[in-house]
């Protein structure tokens, strides 16, 4: 990549966002995902309450916000891993609320997880093969006759090997995924998600727990997704990374979208600063910390219920 001339995808994305009002819920010219009034409550706590948000096709959009803002919960709603109490959203114009997680993935909306879910007891290449869609051999009866699926399996393997090479994991092809480093697992998870040829890739904290040496390479891969025509929506705490790769930033706090805008301007937005300063404006918190806070909230809730 040349430093001075921007890649085509970046240019297109920037053009789409040019002159757009930096207001929460602003309409995008070509949205791939449109969300309306999504609400999720845990007991008395409203974890997510998003009025309206659109994600521009072909862009890299960052979803940021202080801890407990409901980003991951929001992700879970959109991808069918949790059911929203209210609201609806469309992906490519198709209604997706109440659609189960695996169907969401088949539609081309694939996610990764904050705590990496590399299947550590399968080899790297088996992990990759698993990501491919519409495999003939995944039917029990057809699976019994290798002749029926061997050809497709070879194609899948080729595709997987190409991706592994791109993600520099080809040397680990036959290792158990459990033997990979944290960063390599993130890479594997991303590469595996791409096996399904998704349109929208949703990354939940792709940089968490990644060795700094690998960060640049991961960033490059994320940018590359856009060049390949995919849309990326990611949750991240690392502001440098957000500034570096995102075309558009959506800020959540206390379950709501409080601000939107290009990365440079949104970070100076006073609502954003307030939201962060009000909470933890310095170091990003770890996953355990977030978990702990959630439990604290839960414990408090329980107390209330008991009283």
């Amino acid at each position: 990549m040349h430093a001075e001339s921007l890649p085509a995808g970046k240019t297109a994305a920037l053009k789409a966002f040019e002159g757009m009002a930096a207001e929460p819920g602003v309409a995008k010219p070509d949205p791939i995902l449109v969300v309306d009034n999504v609400v999720r409550r845990f007991g008395g706590l409203t974890a997510v309450n998003v009025n309206h948000v659109e994600i521009q096709r072909g862009s890299i959009t960052a979803l940021i916000g202080p801890n407990g803002a409901g980003k991951t919960t929001f992700f879970n709603q959109l991808t069918g891993f949790d059911t929203a109490d209210e609201g609806q959203w469309t992906f490519n114009g198709r209604n997706m609320n109440g659609v189960s997680a695996y169907k969401v993935a088949r539609q081309g909306m694939v996610r990764t997880f904050q705590l990496t879910k590399a299947l550590s007891k399968l080899t790297v290449i088996e992990n990759m093969r698993l990501g491919a869609q519409a495999q003939r051999g995944e039917n029990f009866f057809r699976g019994l006759f290798p002749a029926l699926w061997r050809g497709q399996e070879d194609e899948i393997t080729l595709q997987a090997e190409e991706l592994l090479e791109r993600f520099k994991l080809d040397a680990k092809r036959d290792d158990f995924a459990g033997s990979l480093s944290g960063g390599q697992r993130k890479l594997l998870e991303m590469a595996r998600a791409l096996m399904g040829k998704p349109e929208l890739v949703m990354l939940d904290e792709p940089m968490a727990g990644v060795n700094p040496a690998l960060t640049q390479s991961l960033l490059g891969h994320v940018k590359n997704l856009r060049e390949l025509g995919m849309t990326v929506l990611f949750v991240e705490h690392d502001m440098d990374m957000v500034r570096d790769i995102s075309d558009w930033v959506i800020v959540m706090a206390q379950g709501q979208v409080i601000a939107e805008g290009p990365p440079d301007s949104v970070m100076s937005d006073h609502r954003v600063v307030d939201a962060y300063l009000g909470a933890h404006h310095d170091a990003p918190l770890s996953a355990e910390e977030e978990e702990r806070q959630l439990h604290e909230a839960e414990a408090e809730l329980e107390k209330e219920v008991k009283e």
């Binding site: 702990r292 439990h295 604290e296 839960e298 414990a299 329980e302």
Partner: peptide, 12 residues
């Protein structure tokens, strides 16, 4: 009850 609710938190 605290332990049943969340052992890690109870411990801390």
């Amino acid at each position: 009850r605290a332990v049943a609710d969340n052992p890690a938190l109870a411990s801390s």
